[in-house]
Design a protein around this nucleic acid. Sequence first.
DNA 1: TTCGAAACACTAACCGTTAGTGCTATTGTC
DNA 2: GACAATAGCACTAACGGTTAGTGTTTCGAA
Lengths: 214, 214
Amino acid sequence: MTVPTVPPGRRERKKAATRQKIADTALRLFLEHGYDAVGIREVAAEADVAVTTVFAHFASKEALVFDQDEHFEQRLTYAVTARAPQDPLIPALRQETGALLSHCTTEEAAPLWQLIEGSSALRQYEVSMRLRHAQSLAAAITADPASPRDATACRTIARFAIDAFSLAREADDPQAALDEVFRMIDAAWEAALLSSSEDGESEDSESEDGEEGS
Amino acid sequence: MTVPTVPPGRRERKKAATRQKIADTALRLFLEHGYDAVGIREVAAEADVAVTTVFAHFASKEALVFDQDEHFEQRLTYAVTARAPQDPLIPALRQETGALLSHCTTEEAAPLWQLIEGSSALRQYEVSMRLRHAQSLAAAITADPASPRDATACRTIARFAIDAFSLAREADDPQAALDEVFRMIDAAWEAALLSSSEDGESEDSESEDGEEGS
DNA sequence: TTCGAAACACTAACCGTTAGTGCTATTGTC
DNA sequence: GACAATAGCACTAACGGTTAGTGTTTCGAA
């Protein structure tokens, strides 16, 4: 494989600059006039690029707003896969969720969330995004040695954790709400461990596969 | 024949017939050629109505597929609000969810879900729909006398219950998966009751009467 | 230097969706 | 029975997101 050294390369820098310019312009216009009131054509014109260029960098109009999408997803799965071997799962999830939540509840992030609340298209996009996050997280949890062998329980906990984030974000006191939801998740996880050990402790070598579609 | 004892009204019958014809035609075309491959204009032409008429009956293209939407929502909230006074909440939810799940896992419903899985637009729509259901359910649970006073816990359980449905539907053995998820939900609910009783005044977790507290 | 790939632009279209307008049939009322 | 009000429906035209097709430029690698 040819390793293109480390230097960013003039071209990639230009590309990144274009992308950033589009994202900045879009966000500014959205915050100024509202998401639904600003069209892609306006964004493109204001950023001085063609409409097709916008879609070359962002998969959809909504993706212009949810740009840190993957970052969120990666931090969450990383918190599971890269924790100390004997660290319990749930507290690790709770801590990372709390950190991510902090980022989203700063005052400077408030207008952004207000924007999202104000557009049904954005709200809809967010839910789907969270579901994707839950699926990634489920994969990470299932692969974890400390998890029960039951895939359903793992997927369940992943969903619950994502729910915790979005429930807490909507609450008056996000961190307190997060605490509460995670107490419930902890209890749920314990229950899953219990029933899986009763159920078939000596049984294994099953269902290694399973996952992924499209 | 149809004897309109309580006058359905000729007009309303025609309206319902048109609606049904549109829904049937759309579903048939979708199943034949795929959701994304069939446009609204084709559906309208095949049903022999105008495009605007389609949207007069259905809010969106996706709504043509998720037609029983409200029925689902109503049954779920009804299971909470209309249960016997001393019936515990979670089993009631579990039972109704199981019944709804049975409807969705029959063989005749399989092609429909296959259709949904095959279109990202439909999957996205479904997630948003489920969120709406969770919100309705949360309202019902919050209003329930047996619930903890804490709104966060109620909203959490509502989400978890909706998650249970969709997680179970995707599982190999839906009913078994539902059992498992609901064991976890039950544990979570108990934990919520516990912490809310510690938190506030001293009340029993078993036979508490929520009383309202402002 | 030269070649190929990638970024970008531009046009033109498709698709879902929504006014705007008006016709027609049904309904409740006189 | 006649009448006005209403609601269903059709039709055209458009808007906004998105994509295909077609070039053109520009950089990176051989």
